[in-house]
């Protein structure tokens, strides 16, 4: 039996969670919400995390109903993410690991999402679409934010989704798929250039959100389908913050239906960055015998998913 506590703070979510052999004991989170039209910056985000981390930690331990002496391993997000917020949370993890005298493990954020998705959905070896602001969507979204100052509460993506539901007219936007890669930079410049004239032509903000969402998601679904066909896999798992968008899930579901594949998706409790995913991935590493030297427990802003040796999986 392994009880693991996980600290996550690579972006604007601060999350601490405790798991016991895949069972979620607590999953606490605070989000740093910026004013409409603004994104989160490292310094302010780090301050937010610093001000809240001890409260969230107390909450997570109380909710879990365990004693800290029961904890087997302390896990934290090693990267990728923003430097200052990562460091803030890592310092707390290092400190409590020393106070409690527990081993410490740095976890790759993306692997956290994937392992969490597998745990919650029971998917075995799926093609994983990891959609989050950092990788994909924020580029398109943040520009939309500056154009319309969409609220960042609860998240800009959610607000685009709600507005898009009211859209009716479809505008053609640049569509760029290169093999199994997508490129969103064209769509962004196009939007910037054309927004004024499109609005004058009678398209509404809702129409633009709708078209943007339809186009961007079509690209994501198409590349996922390419990966499915190329790897001859029959499972798709969507993770990451944007993964809880219902339209994306619906499109992916339709694609899967058309080729007899199975779709796994989670809701916002686990899609959005959280501490449980770090705890769970860390517990898997701990179980398979991974140990990290104290001097290796640093943070790194860039940390590729394929740099992690998956010791806990046999497939």
């Amino acid at each position: 039996m392994v009880i693991a506590i996980g600290f996550e703070g690579s972006a604007n979510k601060l999350g601490i969670g405790i798991v016991k052999d895949g069972e979620v004991l607590s999953n606490c989170r605070r989000t740093y919400i910026t004013p409409p039209g603004e994104g989160f910056l490292p310094k302010e985000t780090a301050i937010h995390h610093r001000q809240n981390v001890l409260k969230v930690l107390r909450e997570a331990i109380d909710k879990s109903g365990i004693k800290v002496s029961d904890i087997d391993v302390v896990c934290y997000t090693k990267g990728p993410g923003m430097g200052a917020p990562l460091a803030t949370v890592a310092i707390v993890a290092r400190t409590v690991a020393q106070i409690w005298n527990k081993p410490l493990l740095g976890v790759n954020h993306c692997i956290g999402h994937i392992e969490m998705g597998r745990l919650i959905t029971g998917a075995k070896n799926p093609i994983v679409l990891y959609v989050s602001g950092g990788n994909t969507q924020v580029i398109a979204y943040s520009k939309k934010d500056t154009a319309y100052s969409l609220s960042n509460d609860p998240s800009p993506g959610y607000n685009i989704e709600q507005l898009a539901k009211k859209g009716e007219k479809y505008v053609s936007l640049p569509y760029c798929v290169k093999g199994m890669d997508v490129s969103f930079s064209g769509i962004l410049s196009y939007m910037e250039e054309k927004i004024e004239s499109l609005l004058r032509e009678g398209y509404t903000e809702a129409d633009l959100c709708y078209s943007l969402q339809e186009t961007v998601f079509a690209m994501l679904v198409e590349t996922t389908e390419r990966a499915l066909a190329h790897c001859e896999s029959t499972e798709v798992l969507i993770v990451g913050g944007v993964g809880c968008n219902e339209r994306l899930q619906a499109m992916m579901h339709q694609m899967c239906l058309e080729r007899d594949a199975k779709l796994f998706a989670t809701d916002e409790r686990f899609c959005i960055d959280n501490g449980v995913m770090i705890a769970h991935a860390g517990a898997e590493m701990f179980n398979s015998g991974t140990k990290m030297k104290w001097e290796d427990c640093f943070i790194t802003q860039r940390y590729r998913t394929d740099d992690v040796e998956t010791t806990w999986r046999e497939d």
Partner: peptide
């Protein structure tokens, strides 16, 4: 190239 129902028909 069969119709992809997940995409907008125009696209």
């Amino acid at each position: 190239r069969f119709k992809k129902k997940y995409r907008h028909p125009t696209l």
